[in-house]
Design a protein around this nucleic acid. Sequence first.
RNA 1: UCCUCGGUAGCUCAAUGGUAGAGCAUUCGGCUGUUAACCGAAGGGUUGCAGGUUCGAGUCCUGCCCGAGGAGCCA
Length: 454
Amino acid sequence: MPKCAKSSRGWMPPPERDSLVPSAIEIRNIAQFAGQEVRIEGWLYNLRESGKIVFPLVRDGTGILQCVAVKSALPPEVFERIRGLTQESSLGVTGRVRQEKRAPGGYELDVTDLDVIHRVPEDRPYPITPKEHGVDFLMDHRHLWLRSSRQRAILGVRHEIIRACRDFFDDRGFTLVDTPILTPSACEGTTTLFEVAYFEDKAFLTQSGQLYNEAAAMAVGKTYCFGPTFRAEKSKTRRHLTEFWMIEPEVAFARLDDVMTLAEQLVAFVVGRVLEKRRGELKSLERDVSRLEKCVPPFPRLAYDEAVKMLKEKGSAIEWGGDFGGTDETLLSQDSDKPLLVHRYPSRVKAFYMAPDPARPEVALCVDVLAPEGYGEIIGGGERLADERVLVERIEEQKLPREAFEWYLDLRRYGSVPHSGFGMGIERVVAWICGLDHVRETIPFPRMLYRLTP
RNA sequence: UCCUCGGUAGCUCAAUGGUAGAGCAUUCGGCUGUUAACCGAAGGGUUGCAGGUUCGAGUCCUGCCCGAGGAGCCA
């Protein structure tokens, strides 16, 4: 541990340096070291051999570098050590960096020495070979699959999306207020919640931070929470996980139109940031970035009524009053390169806390954002019921346990104001931006109906 | 929970009811510019499990287990 100087304000960070691990350079910085002797530390990605010349491909988490080991230029024991390397063995390589047009990254390392940190035994080789594998096999080896360049690209985009969301809200005066994961009761019915033992009592894993967000918004005005969310629904589709991450802003005094604009700006900001910072990852995922580039505001807005009309014309069996199915969402969103905002759904298909439209009480002041290219719903939210009397009616109508909501009703008793917010599912956004056909690849360790390991 | 499809070598997949095979991976050999390298050889199997039909079952039938896609529900 580096010694940390103490000041009157407490801890000071250790002095800055180029690399956290000074024993080696990072492959992503290789160009800076052209002509120099360097050491890299990583894992063997692949090994190609041609008699007296060997090409070990080494990855270190920041990139992949092709090394060149020539028999005549190395001590025999070093050359044999390199020849006998197994896939994913960890190693340190020293050599001279050379610009090389034929190499994938434009640079190569002429090996002068190589030490094996841990050798993968040949009688139990690394299971994921550079060939095709089935989904089930890969999911069983998710802890190793993450090492592949494709998964690394997805992890990078996911990270950028999360960071962009935080920056977006932080830069606009929002305060992050963490909401609990363990909750005392269901906010929208217990059937979709995971139940856990809580000492002598029961608790449930949260399905949304929203009710707590409303309390926080009354304290700080603009708030957001970001955390895991749990749904015990037995959904088995490419858009569902039982554990997923959701970012949820909530704004006091905001109306439906305000949060529709907020959602539009957030999505455009996130897409823009990924296009700016993660072009390389999108390219390696073979994402058609031209479609993402068209994703600039304003986004089309469509009332539920019009959406139903449109769906019927396209042959959907939807009737007014029903919620959209997955195919309906696809039908609505596949034609456009921009996300689509669908607003004012029938109140009865929405949660009890949604405010009715004063002009048409049968519809709620709510909005869903459907991602383009058939990716479907990424955001759901709207204006909340601010009137205590109506809220109590809704709670009773839906036969929810009123005692559990007394604290929530307090928010309507002490300076109730109009307020609105929404939740955005991170994995669906990652799937859309990366162009993936399933959300299971968007989260490091997916939890699904039939998948709890690794 | 329902519907559809699938389970054969470590992996991806073949195999009319008639001797279980290929490519990759592994091991050995060859090759001084390979790009999921290539060429040659070797090892590797209780065909998801349990029954049944049959002279004979990877193949047909029944049940079960596991998985995938979809429906419902949702972000």
